[in-house]
Design a protein around this nucleic acid. Structure first.
Lengths: 242, 242, 242, 242
DNA sequence: CATGAATGAGATTTCATTCAT
DNA sequence: CATGAATGAAATCTCATTCAT
């Protein structure tokens, strides 16, 4: 009789919230998909909103854990740290596409839960990003950038393909679920980071040596480009430097 | 003395959809805020969904009109055209913050009306952007970029501050409603465009001469930077080139 | 199509609350009995609790109106005033047996509404009764009595047959709904009042003329009885005095 | 280490039924307060209604036991017997305030269990009271009173302060829980009994000696008062007779 | 056009009870 | 005995929509 109702409910909820939105999903839908009795939702999460809160907290706990894991290298190298942050977030979001889309959408509403997330997890994330940026700028590793505008762009770029996965598939015929996507997108963002953060004059950049494939399967090691290189098909930011 | 029930309903709806979401807003909320009788909503828009469709169509008609206005200069100069597209979109979104936030959020759902938007307006937008990019790449005005990844990033950057206006104000203490914001953000995006599109070797870039203030009040003319310049506090993409 | 739904709901609610209690009555029961749609209850009273509040307020507004009507004669004669208070309350309760039973029962719970009633209407009632008693005692019309204990007994006697109507009919085979009951019970209470309030030394009491039925509409002005009279079948407190 | 689940459940139930009513209390509330598992309630009492029945039966068994204890003296003296009945009931109710309030309230509903109580315990109580009254009247110890009206008043007076304990404390600022209250209230009721039952011509009444507090453990035997006495502050019914 | 009343469908929540362990 | 999970039934409430005026 082991049913693992709680986990089933969570999975069903994430899937449905993702496609139909929180308000567009009924507890009956969830219970139906999870093949459990509706009353179990109240039993485990108090009420529908409790399930929402659970999703948010669960998401951001893990999300921040990924960011903090990347923070470990901050003392050594701010740039590598920022790269790792980006890499970890992309990987995390790729591994949780449904939940991510739902959270990012819900986050744009003006609700109690959202305000709580902002004043806790998202404020912390901002703090961590600021730390990296300030360390990098003080060390002259980074260009001087406006921290807020950097964060806006970083988060805009990181969330777009996950929030708008439907747009990607139906309009651009690009599939963010595919295993290559995360890798490719990481390359794009890596280039964006380089452009925006590294002093272009410094010809010899520190290398971020990624011997292990950051996500999944086999992959050629990433590294900061020293010289202009042809990147077949991918966006190219920097063309010439010498 | 009821003068403009229909318009009042639309304005109330946009405001409420913006903060509470479409599903989170009741027709009674709308009628209450618009100070009209609930039945009027059915009268003017058939039903609640009709109001949603009206908002979407209204939004994208105007949105695409802005994009098409910018397309006029494509024959002359693809780069200037792309700049104008970005400028017009930022301005349009700034002038319709509530509606924009709502549309961008709703677009991430999997609904009938969203699929229709995707197969019409958004497909058209993609076509227009592709035209500019292809023209620019054929003319060697632009670097070779992956069109899809360019669009993903472009749209991610353009929508972030409008979709996440609450994050900007509550976490970053930056206010996307303020008149300066659109101008500043246009500068950021302009730099991004330059980095991503223009061959960096070309030292003498064509200038986009903005004699008239693109948005709102008095403003110093924007232009493509020829040389490295100190930009107090703002994000700096390119530092040195020679 | 005139349905007078609101009034129908109220009447159905009073009847059902009376027999099954507030919590024991469902909104469906009420809607069913009133032959209206359940949603009307929310429409008119916000929610089930709103209906409860309406009943309480409605009851006590009218109840206090009856008490205040009787207060008019206080300046002339405290004793007659108290008699009129008792008479009006008995009549009011007789005319609203269902509502009275329900209110008296509900009043014994510890709820928000009850606390509000206590701090408003019941505090006012206490104030009015105290006024009568103090006036009567100062004028030497009344014996010196402990006000609180007087009120406890008065209210206990006034409410008993209405709260426990079922006990009366099923155990005592006495029917508080019958038209005679109110008259008879008024006599009982009148005797109780005389015993407890009037100085027994005064052999010649003012007469309260009860030849006409007290509760049949048209009624001769009330007055205190001058002489003892045989009251067939009814409780007799005082038998002989000389 | 769970020692007395059943008793804990009963105590929790009584407390909660008392403040929130039977229907207003959930089995989870009870289990929570009693710190036992919900299933225990079904285990011990079959179901929630079984707990209700248990409370009723438990209450009336003990209640009638008190009445019957007082009946012992009926052969000697009907008046003393009635006094003892009143005294025992007040004491019993004082010692079970929560349960009493709950039972008295619930008794005003029209339910299966209530009808059963009425046709058994309450019918028996009526029989016992009638016996006393009839004996007293036959012996000429008592005035001729209408038995039903006497019972109505007796029960109204006896239950009022216990059913409406909240009214007493919040409106009258009198506290029925306090140890003096029962004593004082017994005095009031004793006077009421005297007034209503004893032939007023009899100038020399048996004395009820109230020097020692009637309800604090050790107590001198009760008796009828012989002479009028000043009762400081308390309600006085009869002042002078000659 | 405008309104307030009314409705039906369905969503959320509550709750006593049961069951396997 | 005791427990926590699970359930079914039903209660309350919400809400878009309709209708007569």
């Amino acid at each position: 009789m082991r049913k693992n109702s709680k986990e089933d409910i969570i999975q069903a909820a994430i899937f449905l919230f993702n496609t139909k939105g929180f308000q567009g999903t009924t507890v009956r839908d969830i219970a139906g998909k999870a093949k459990v009795n509706v009353a179990n939702i109240s039993y485990y999460f108090q009420n529908k909103n409790g399930l929402l809160e659970y999703c948010f907290i669960h998401y951001y706990e893990n999300y921040l854990f990924e960011v903090e894991k990347a923070m470990a290298v901050l003392e050594e190298d701010a740039y590598v740290c920022m790269q790792k942050v980006v890499e970890n977030i992309i990987r995390f979001q790729s591994q949780n596409v449904h939940l991510t889309r739902f959270i990012l959408r819900e986050l744009s509403l003006d609700t109690q839960v959202v305000r709580e997330m902002m004043s806790t997890y998202l404020t912390k994330e901002r703090y961590l990003l600021t730390e990296i940026l300030e360390k990098g700028m003080i060390n002259k590793e980074f260009n001087k950038v406006n921290i807020n505008f950097f964060i806006i762009q970083l988060k805009g770029l990181l969330s777009m393909p996950f929030l708008n996965s439907q747009y990607l598939s139906e309009v651009l015929h690009t599939f963010p679920q595919e295993k290559y996507f995360a890798d490719k997108y990481y390359l794009e963002m890596s280039n964006w980071l380089e452009n925006i953060l590294t002093p272009s004059s410094t010809s010899a950049k520190k290398q971020y040596n990624v011997t292990a494939p950051p996500f999944a399967m086999k992959r050629v090691p990433l590294g900061r480009r020293k010289h202009k290189q042809e990147e077949g098909g991918s966006l190219r930011y920097i063309v010439e430097r010498h």
